[in-house]
């Protein structure tokens, strides 16, 4: 019989399941309710405005419930020329891009865990440095660079820009660090090629990590705005963020008269976020597992 380290009274009041004491649990719930409210109220506001009528959406006091319920905002957005095409463009570019980004990042991550690899440290440092470069340093040359590569107004251009992400590489490296080296060692002894080891050992054992990277990378690509804006001039190639920005923030001259109602602005926001939300609920299962291994081994 083990000697209890803690007070007898504590043991007696210990709940059946391994849980916080009732008082603590209540406090926990209250805290989380508060957080829940703080998080969700502003977003309910967005939703409410998006479902209000044109004139009602302008009023400052639409809070949690639509005023004069209407879908005028959504119709406005829906009727925008090229919206459907923009949706398709974004989907195509994001899916294809993410696919390749994940493969490339995974391979690079694998490279960075080879302990005896000459210059490995230098390579890793180089990758890390790319994360430190402010966009303004390279902003003005984006069009010029893509023009010399013939990537203007092309799907290839939209996919290639942003194809490699240092962040994804570093994360994949961390997941791979948790795969036991003995597996790869014995595989090498059996004369397996590096690619083989990569595909049949490391990848399957890091599936959660891959899922995590895929999801986060997809979000980044879906929301990417500045570079697609600069390298596309043909409207049929515009991606969703561009079309929505064009719609809801019309540039007008100093005494211009253009105006977009707030419900349309909010509708545009909802439209952008819904696909990501759906993806999130799908990925939630993997996410917990995936990001785990990456971070804690970091």
């Amino acid at each position: 019989m083990r000697t209890p380290i803690f007070e007898r009274s504590e043991r007696v009041s210990r709940p059946f399941r391994n849980q916080l004491r009732p008082a603590e649990r209540v406090f926990n719930w209250v805290l989380l309710m508060l957080v829940f409210l703080i998080m969700i109220l502003p977003m309910l506001n967005v939703l409410a405005i998006s479902f209000s009528s044109n004139t009602a959406s302008q009023v400052a006091d639409v809070t949690l419930w639509p005023k004069e319920f209407s879908t005028e905002g959504y119709t406005f957005i829906w009727n925008a020329r090229n919206l459907g095409q923009a949706f398709k463009n974004s989907s195509f570019v994001s899916v294809v891009g993410t696919f390749f980004t994940v493969i490339i990042s995974a391979m690079a991550g694998y490279v960075l865990i080879q302990r005896e690899l000459p210059f490995r440290k230098a390579i890793a440092t180089g990758v890390l440095i790319t994360m430190m470069i402010p966009g303004d340093l390279t902003l003005v040359s984006i069009f010029s660079l893509n023009k010399s590569l013939g990537l203007i107004d092309s799907y290839l251009g939209l996919i290639l820009n942003g194809l490699v992400s240092a962040f994804s590489i570093m994360l994949m490296r961390n997941y791979f660090l948790s795969v036991p080296e003995s597996l790869s060692e014995s595989a090498r002894i059996d004369n397996a090629s590096e690619l083989r080891i990569f595909f049949s050992i490391y990848l399957p054992l890091s599936l959660p990590g891959l899922a995590a990277i895929t999801f986060l990378d997809f979000i980044g690509k879906w929301n990417s705005f500045m570079i697609p804006l600069i390298i596309t001039t043909k409207p049929e190639l515009f991606t969703l963020p561009i079309i929505l920005r064009q719609l809801t923030q019309p540039t007008d001259s100093t005494s211009g008269v253009l105006q977009v109602y707030d419900n349309a602005r909010m509708a545009a926001i909802v439209i952008t976020v819904i696909p990501l939300l759906l993806l999130y609920s799908l990925a939630q299962r993997f996410l917990i597992g995936g990001l785990t291994l990456g971070a804690s081994k970091g």
């Binding site: 490339i104 391979m107 690079a108 694998y110 490279v111 080879q114 005896e116 690899l117 000459p118 390579i123 180089g126 990758v127 790319t130 470069i133 340093l137 390279t138 040359s141 984006i142 660079l145 590569l149 290639l160 820009n161 194809l163 490699v164 590489i169 090629s193 590096e194 690619l195 990569f198």
Partner: peptide, 23 residues
Amino acid sequence: YRAIYLMIVPVFVYFAVFTFYPL
């Protein structure tokens, strides 16, 4: 390690063209 180096070639190329050159 040449097989390994090959696996990271796309990353080199990409960073060289799209990151370090504009930098």
